[in-house]
Amino acid sequence: MRYRIVAGSNVPIFRQIADQIGRAVATGDLKIGDSVPSVRQLARDLVINPNTVAKAYSDLVASGVLENQPGRGYFINKRRQVFTKTERLRRLDETIDLLISQSVALDFSASEVLDRVKELFTQKLSVAPE
């Protein structure tokens, strides 16, 4: 997978990295047990401070997405869910907020959007093995 970041965004660089890994896990691009680049390698590839990558990884470890195996590196973790229901809802609502404003701007009705969401959900999940 290819990592990309932009400076000057309203999403801090460490969170851009964490989001990309989170998304790749959700879509199945990264599977349980897959490794991610070492802190040093990713910092070099993206031309950023290694502490920024380390911060992204330690946040992902804290949220249960990554597992740190000392001496071996970071791997996608089996245990997926460490957030409380409230936190999961909050995160979901953030994304839905964006979806709603885009939908209104592009003139889609709620039911059109729902149908589309269902359609894409099935598509993505049939690709992504559990």
Binding site: A7, G8, I13, V47, I48, N49, N51
Partner: peptide, 10 residues
């Protein structure tokens, strides 16, 4: 250069 500072510094 704020972009550079954001990338390079800690």
């Amino acid at each position: 250069m704020l972009d550079d500072i954001e990338r390079v510094t800690d």
